[in-house]
């Protein structure tokens, strides 16, 4: 036995021997937990209500580093133009622009990409006056089409490589779609 134990025993003996022994022996000890639980629930409610579990998501965008003229075959070019009022027009190659609804845009993107077997270049031109939200909506539709394009091309044994660019809208573009 160690020295410390001797000390402890002596102490216990001293306390046990006194007349206060009966008062010290508390077998059932009950702590009122109510205030603790109250506070815990209060804090829990606060943190639960103030927490936002949804963090904003992102849409990744890549732009070419240089503004250079790239020679592309007209037949492999799909131009999408968004007019100032939000209407979308598409033109294949040098065809005249035609209006298109958003719900058909996805079908068009899939169809043309599959038809040209991955060589299609999509060019998006948005009017400076169109609300930014509209551009994102169109981009979102194109992103949604990607899934199907990848799958359809994979069936033909091709690996999808996305060719997409955003270009500023020129006055000529504006004029072309102004009357439609």
């Amino acid at each position: 036995m160690g020295v410390a134990d001797f000390g402890g025993e002596a102490k216990r003996e001293r306390r046990g021997g006194t007349r206060q022994r009966k008062k010290m022996r508390r077998l059932r000890y009950r702590l009122d937990m109510t205030p603790l639980v109250d506070i815990a629930f209060l804090l829990l409610t606060f943190f639960m209500l103030t927490t936002t579990l949804i963090t904003p998501q992102v849409m990744e965008m890549t732009i070419p580093p240089e503004r250079t003229q790239v020679e592309v075959r007209e037949s492999e070019l799909l131009t999408l133009r968004i007019r100032h009022d939000g209407k979308v027009f598409y033109s294949l190659g040098q065809d005249a622009p035609q209006p298109i609804e958003l719900k058909d845009l996805r079908t068009l993107a899939v169809r043309e990409n599959v038809r040209l077997k991955n060589r299609l270049i999509t060019l998006l031109k948005a009017s400076p006056n169109v609300p930014y939200g509209r551009v994102i909506t169109v981009l979102d539709v194109l992103n949604q089409a990607e899934l199907e394009i990848t799958e359809r091309l994979a069936q033909e044994g091709l690996k999808r490589e996305r060719r997409f660019a955003i270009a500023p809208m020129t006055e000529q573009d504006e004029q072309e779609i102004a009357q439609l």
Binding site: P56, Q57, V58, I136, T137, D140
Partner: peptide, 11 residues
């Protein structure tokens, strides 16, 4: 913010 279809990429 503009709305886009649910995506897994986060900020």
């Amino acid at each position: 913010r503009p709305q886009a279809t649910a995506d897994t990429s986060r900020l």
